[in-house]
Amino acid sequence: MIKGQPTSEPVQKPPIGQFALLPGLAMLLVLPLVAGGSDYILQVFTHALLLATLALAWNILAVSGSISLGHAAFFGVGAYTSGLLSLELGVSSWLTIPTAGLSAVAIAVLMWLFCHRLRGAYFALATLAFVEIPRVITDNWDGLTRGSRGLVGLPGLPGLRLGAHHFDISASPTGSYYFVLGYGLLLLAMVTLIFRSNLGLALQAIREEETAASTLGIQVQKYRLMALLLSALFSGITGACYAHLVRYIEPGMVYGIHFSAIPLIFAICGGRFTIIGPALAALVLYPLDQFLFHPLLPAGHEFLYGAVIILTILFLPSGFWGQLRKGHLVSIKTGSIE
């Protein structure tokens, strides 16, 4: 960490430190042991972690101020790319998952051509409409994508061979869980790097005051594009993981409004100006939905997400983690650390 010059003023204690999250991380690490034989609990948390990665990926773009309502496009294209490559060509999912990320980047370039001049609500609307393009094409291109029948019987998440040992991740829920957890932690590290880097400073500056940012030498469009491509890359990878986790996809599912709404809800509710807030919201809200609301209200349990987003915008505009860490959203440490 970069140290600033010692300042005379004592360092303000943050209302809540990032270290408060360490017990949570520890719990995630040992969850398969604690959850014992319950595959259901593990499955729910595997999904929660996957949705957390989608929210983290979404937030890379939101840092630059662009709210997307169209991340299902990247998610769906990623899921289909990885699914088709492994079904049709039998390629190992170690290869198809990164390729899926790249195909999402390609779609993001197309989206950029349409949307690069748009800001705010108009950008959001254009992304909302944009999802229809890959969805309708996937739905209709029977020869390639098998259309609305979807892809059935997808191979599971990739296995791992260490010397003579072979860990088949897909064979056990525990394996899938740790695979997704590992990806989540990797992505969290990436997002932390992005936030703390010059790229992150540029994106935040663009979000706050685009004109001032360009006057200070920031090439606004270049950085907005970088944010979109990085965000699409990881959303595509998440989509691919989802396909191999669930092993069945169809256009209405992976391109549905659900996967555009979920990252937006988690990120805004957790705090889109924070690094980890979006992931936290996913890990709290999704299990809450699955363990509490789903049994109570099998049809319509997702009203929870609608209610949460309305309440957040009205009462906690910076999200709950943003609120807890108010005034400490900063990337560069300023206090005297010596």
Binding site: G4, L201, Q204, A205, R207, E208, E209, A212, A213, F273, L329, V330, S331, I332, T334
Partner: peptide, 9 residues
């Protein structure tokens, strides 16, 4: 100012 960033940033 970049309102949500620190003075130093």
């Amino acid at each position: 100012p970049f309102a949500k960033m620190s003075v130093l940033e």
